[in-house]
Simulated assay, not measured.
Amino acid sequence: MTTLLFDEYTQALKNRCIELNGTAVVVELTGGQTLTGTLAYALADGPQFTKYYPNALTVTVSTKAYTVRLDAIAAIGQG
């Protein structure tokens, strides 16, 4: 049951990241830190010419890019 809830949360988070791709965001991490910058969440290449959304995204703060795993995100919103 826990896995199902985690999978649903992960899919909802992916959907939100797709919506916010390319915009200014505020990302709250599970460790209590916050990143404010531009979100990049793009399709990655999979096997046999498939595409998929990965379990990580990039937030660029000023000129530094941070890669963040989806399971490390407590909340994300436009900012």
Rank of each mutant, 00 (worst) to 15 (best):
Q11N: 07
T38H: 13
T60H: 08
I18G: 01
G31E: 04
Q11G: 00
A40G: 03
N21T: 03
A44V: 07
A74P: 02
A40P: 00
D45K: 09
Q78C: 03
K51H: 06
T23K: 15
T34E: 09
Q33F: 05
R16Y: 02
D7V: 03
Q78F: 13
E8L: 14
G77D: 09
Y53R: 10
Y66I: 07
I73T: 03
K64P: 00
Y9W: 11
T34I: 13
L20P: 03
D71K: 09
G32P: 05
G37P: 13
Q33I: 00
N21V: 04
L29E: 01
A75R: 12
K64F: 11
G46F: 09
R16L: 14
V68A: 01
L70V: 04
Y41K: 02
I73W: 03
L29I: 07
T10N: 01
E19S: 04
V68N: 02
T63Q: 14
L29G: 03
T67H: 12
T67D: 12
R69N: 12
V61Q: 08
P47W: 01
T34L: 12
V25N: 10
V27H: 04
T2S: 09
V68T: 09
L35C: 09
T10L: 08
C17F: 03
T2K: 13
F49T: 04
